[in-house]
Nucleic acid binder design. Structure first.
Lengths: 98, 98
DNA sequence: AACGATACTACGGCATTGCCGTAGTAAATG
DNA sequence: CATTTACTACGGCAATGCCGTAGTATCGTT
């Protein structure tokens, strides 16, 4: 057994101890979900019609309309998805391909 | 039969003709939105508890529970988002950072 | 000018989900 | 054995999802 291995084990034990002590950070990684999303802005920046936008990213056309017309607010998961469409649109099409 | 009705029928026939002619190019990139998503599978592969999973990707804990317990089915946007979490989890955290 | 296509607004309306809370079960650990 | 973590199970209201239809504005074509 190398000294390296020993150090690793010790480090593990130390963090286990810290966990038990309550010294450890039990906070969960918590992402921020935006309360408002400007759907029209995201869509027009991509140069797409409502229909094309819906078809390209999997939204229901009726939902896109409700959102842009301010009739309804996209719910949590939709807001997150819209953020991804804004920042990394390709990630969406990749995930839905195949 | 009103003139209005006739016009509608004619319009329908015309666009059907155009469609058959190939004159109409209505090609929209259309992605496939999965009807079913195995939330538990996605979560456990990431080695996260329901709480950590929810906190990390922005879901409501109650929604994750409803989905895994088969009480409710994630709706369209949520299914898409879950697919992205499955294929490119980092893309989600990147989009929600900052 | 009349027409057809495109893009969008506006909205009725039902089914379904989102999301909150609480109680109960099971396993691990001090 | 009491406590903590992780999860099941579910009541219940408010809100959205999603479908459909009608109406307006614009534009290129005939």
């Amino acid at each position: 057994m190398t000294k390296r291995a020993f150090d690793k084990i010790k480090a593990g034990l130390d963090s286990a101890k810290a966990y038990l002590d309550g010294t450890a950070d039990k906070s969960l990684y918590r992402v921020h979900v935006p309360e408002k999303v400007d759907v029209r802005k995201i869509r027009t920046r991509l140069g797409l019609s409502q229909e094309a936008f819906a078809a390209t990213y999997g939204f229901a056309l009726s939902a896109v309309r409700d959102w842009e017309q301010g009739r309804r607010k996209p719910e949590r998961s939709a807001r997150i998805l819209l953020k991804i469409v804004e920042k990394e649109p390709e990630a969406v099409t990749r995930a839905l391909a195949g």
